[in-house]
Simulated scan of single mutants.
Amino acid sequence: MLAAMSEPHSNYQRVAKAIHFIAERQLEQPSLRDLADHVGLSEFHLQRVFAEWAGISPKQFLQFLTKERAKQQLRSSSVLHAALDCGLSGSSRLHDLMIKTECMTPGEYRKLGAGMDVCYGVQASPFGYCLIAQTQRGVCKIAFFDSPDDEAAVVAELQNEWPAATLRCDQGAVDPVFAQIFSGIKAGTAPLRVLLKGSEFQLKVWEALLAIPDGEVCSYQQLAGAMGIASSVRSVASAIARNHIAYLIPCHRVIRSTGEFSQYRWGTERKQAILLHETARVAAKVIGE
């Protein structure tokens, strides 16, 4: 049921391969030629594809990827604290999209989706194949995967999360959501609604993630501290790992205090790619202002 591979998606596959190579050899500061040989493109073609996808060059990304760059961002957590203090954990502007969260009640949570209709669709996104599922109350799952062969497993995961719900594929119903998230549609667009299902603690952590500004990162310790639960770092990390809504609930913006990007439910290279994309977009806005 997957649509034909889009240009942004095919470029992502090349960029992901380049990201993995750069991450493994960042201490060696690989040249553009080294990178092009590994990806199987000419230097000119790689430079063009990378810049078109990310908005910056492979060399600039190498600079972004270093631990020192990440550590510099981690030194400033005041923005996160300010956002949470102002009550912004429940709603945030994510790349010009207003996100409105709604949480299931404990009673609804126990019903496991009974009486609910969940529709889903799959498309090629700028970060690989992407499944989006939604109910009448909002988006309830976003998941990335690399191969069409993985689609069945992702759909099974969705069914496991909503075992009592009626699950159906409805590409037409989900396509507008894809466009709103990945095509930059914003003018006159209604806020995107997200339906969260989890424990009370998990919901608080997921909503707090929305306070991390676009293009920024924070550590697990900083997030726990900003939430006033500095002693619960492990519990916060566990809640982040259980996030079902990739990208919109930006768990990719949390990294280790050492500057390591650490694990990501949908792949470390994808986490790095999303952060790269966001950082480049924010930088472009600053230049344009």
Rank of each mutant, 00 (worst) to 15 (best):
C119V: 14
L46P: 07
A187T: 09
Y129Q: 04
E278A: 13
P250R: 01
R253N: 10
S199Q: 07
Q180V: 10
S199E: 13
V154T: 06
E200I: 01
Y12K: 04
A3D: 14
L32M: 12
A143L: 01
L210A: 09
R75M: 10
S92N: 06
G259I: 00
S42G: 15
R75E: 15
Y264V: 02
A83S: 13
A164R: 09
V155P: 05
A153C: 08
M98V: 00
F178V: 05
V15S: 04
A4Y: 08
V217W: 07
L195A: 12
M98C: 00
G121E: 04
S77Q: 13
G40R: 00
R93W: 09
Y12H: 07
L97P: 02
R48H: 09
R168C: 12
G225A: 12
L35G: 05
Q221A: 15
A18T: 03
M116W: 11
V205G: 11
L223R: 07
G259Q: 06
L2P: 11
A237H: 09
L97I: 13
I212Y: 10
Y12Q: 05
A83K: 06
E278W: 03
K197A: 14
P58Y: 01
A82S: 12
A179V: 05
R234Q: 15
M1G: 11
R265L: 11
Q63D: 15
K141N: 08
V122E: 10
G90C: 00
E278H: 09
P106Y: 00
E7L: 15
V205C: 08
V282G: 05
W53A: 08
M1L: 06
Q29D: 08
L167Y: 08
D85L: 06
G172Q: 10
W162T: 02
L27R: 14
H244T: 13
F144R: 04
K59C: 00
R242F: 04
L223P: 02
Q263T: 12
L88Y: 10
T189A: 14
L203F: 02
F201D: 04
W53P: 00
S257T: 09
G184V: 06
S235V: 07
V282H: 03
S10H: 03
K111A: 14
C251E: 14
G128M: 03
C218Q: 14
N160A: 15
K111P: 00
M104V: 10
C251D: 12
W206P: 06
Q222N: 14
I185R: 09
K100S: 11
T279D: 13
A246N: 12
K141I: 01
D170R: 13
H20S: 14
L65H: 07
V177P: 01
S257K: 10
S78I: 06
A211W: 05
S125F: 06
L112D: 11
Y129T: 01
R168L: 07
V39Y: 01
G55P: 07
Q202Y: 00
C169M: 10
K197P: 03
S92D: 05
L2V: 15
A3N: 13
S183Y: 00
P176D: 15
P58L: 07
L195D: 02
N160Y: 03
S232F: 04
L88K: 14
G107M: 00
W162Y: 04
I212P: 09
C86Y: 00
V122R: 01
I132L: 13
A70R: 12
L276G: 14
M1D: 08
Q26G: 00
A54D: 03
